[in-house]
């Protein structure tokens, strides 16, 4: 049911964990199914220097979490803000239709973490 890329990210998730004293934190729950993701960012000179995630959710939720961390690593904040759930799903060679909502979790957590960073630095 899942693409090879999804299974790869599920089996070998990148950047699992939590950054201590993160510059931005995004904790979101998926309103559709109740799954949860926490994403932490370390930011320097507007650039994402490090990113980590923890996720309580299905295989697609874990894979999209992992993928979003890979996509934003090293990017500047504006670029990271442009990443949507579709970007993440596409990078994983697609998700089954019933699993598209899972990618919202990863995108929402990223945007929440960036928002948190901006609020802290204003």
């Amino acid at each position: 049911m899942y693409s090879d890329k999804v299974m790869d990210h599920f089996n070998n998730p990148r950047n699992v964990g939590e950054i201590e004293e993160a510059d931005g934190t995004g904790s979101v729950g998926n309103p559709d199914c109740g799954d949860i993701m926490k994403l932490t960012l370390s930011i320097e000179d507007n650039k994402i220097k490090d990113v980590k995630f923890k996720t309580f959710g299905c295989g697609a939720a874990i894979a999209t979490s992992s993928m979003v961390t890979e996509l934003v690593m090293g990017k500047n904040i504006d670029e990271a803000e442009d990443i949507s759930n579709d970007t993440v799903a596409e990078a994983l060679d697609g998700l089954p239709p019933v699993k598209m909502h899972c990618s919202n979790l990863a995108a929402d957590a990223l945007h929440a973490a960036i928002k948190d960073y901006k609020e802290k630095n204003n």
Binding site: G29, I36, K54, I62
Partner: peptide
């Protein structure tokens, strides 16, 4: 569990709300 934000190993375990 090592990947779960709900697990006690987590710095600030997230409260599950639904």
């Amino acid at each position: 569990r090592s990947m779960s934000p709900l697990y006690a190993g987590s710095n600030e375990p997230v409260v599950f709300k639904r």
